[in-house]
Simulated scan of single mutants.
Amino acid sequence: MNVRTLCLSILHEGETTGYEIRRLCVEGNCSYFIEASFGSIYPALAKLEDEGLVTSRTEQQDGKPAKKVYSITEAGRAAFAQHLSEPLGDDMFRSPFLLFARFAHILPPDLVETRLQDYLERTRERRQHLEEAASERSLNASDAWVVNYGRAIADVAEKYLQAHMDELITLARAEPNKKAAE
């Protein structure tokens, strides 16, 4: 998925601003799909507008700068549906935690244990957020399916961390001993 398609997906649900699109990509419902910066969102919106796939209007705000509100057009809805009809690309999973885990053997055990506990807590918080989302009555059937998929993934991640965190801590303990033996 690219930023253009992400913008169309959010606008498919209703009109919004570039700022709100960014917020949804960072902490909202779209944070699981793709990360998008302001530097990629606004050029994508401008191009979508040039192509007639979205329109915009300026709204004045009391004590604040005016904001630009975007809406999807019928052509934009058709383009979005067309993109969804195309073959899916591979999921891309990037994790700073997995980089940390890969090199845990070169770190002090207490640091590894602390980072694991922190990451486990954040995983629990993400799962709780999804549990709360699943209880919202406003979810349509497709949204509920996606939320439940996320809940299943978070549940597996939490169980794996609980069952195997000691292995990573042990690896951290092993490296200093190995160096000491040399």
Rank of each mutant, 00 (worst) to 15 (best):
Asn148His: 04
Ile169Phe: 01
Ile72Thr: 04
His12Gln: 14
Leu107Gln: 13
Arg137Trp: 03
Gln162Trp: 00
Ala174Tyr: 03
Ala79Gly: 04
Ile106Gly: 00
Asn177Trp: 06
Pro176Trp: 00
Leu45Tyr: 01
Val156Ile: 11
Thr55Glu: 10
Arg94Ile: 14
Glu74Met: 05
Ala66Lys: 05
Ala174Leu: 09
Ala46Met: 08
Glu136Tyr: 07
Thr123Leu: 10
Gly89Ala: 15
Ala79Gln: 11
Leu116Trp: 03
Trp145Thr: 14
Thr5Lys: 10
Arg127Leu: 14
His129Leu: 12
Arg94Asn: 14
Ser138Asp: 09
Gln128Tyr: 12
Asp155Glu: 15
Glu158Trp: 04
Val147Met: 02
Val3Ser: 04
Thr17Gly: 05
Tyr70Ala: 02
Ser85Thr: 00
Leu84His: 04
Ile153Arg: 08
Gly63Asn: 09
Tyr32Gln: 12
Gln128Val: 00
Thr5Gly: 12
Ala66Gly: 06
Ala172Trp: 03
Arg124Lys: 08
Ala66Val: 01
Met92Asp: 09
Leu6Met: 08
Lys178Phe: 12
Arg115Met: 13
Asp118Thr: 11
Leu99Asn: 10
Leu111Tyr: 12
Asp91Phe: 08
Ile169Arg: 11
Asn29Lys: 13
Lys68Cys: 06
Arg137Glu: 15
Leu111Ser: 08
Ala174Ile: 06
Ala154Val: 07
Leu11Val: 05
Tyr119Ile: 08
Glu167Thr: 07
Glu182Pro: 00
Thr5Tyr: 03
Arg77Thr: 01
Asp166Val: 04
Trp145Ile: 10
Ala181Trp: 07
Ser142Asn: 14
Ala36Pro: 07
Tyr19Gly: 11
Thr170Ala: 13
Ala163Trp: 05
Leu168Gln: 02
Leu107Arg: 09
Lys64Tyr: 10
Ala157Gln: 15
Ala157Met: 07
Leu8Ile: 03
Lys67Gly: 00
Phe97Trp: 12
Tyr119Lys: 10
Val69Arg: 02
Ala163Lys: 07
Glu175Gln: 11
Gly52Asn: 06
Asp118Ser: 12
His105Gln: 10
Ala81Gly: 01
Asp50Lys: 14
Met1Ala: 09
Lys47Arg: 15
Ser85Pro: 01
Gln60Lys: 15
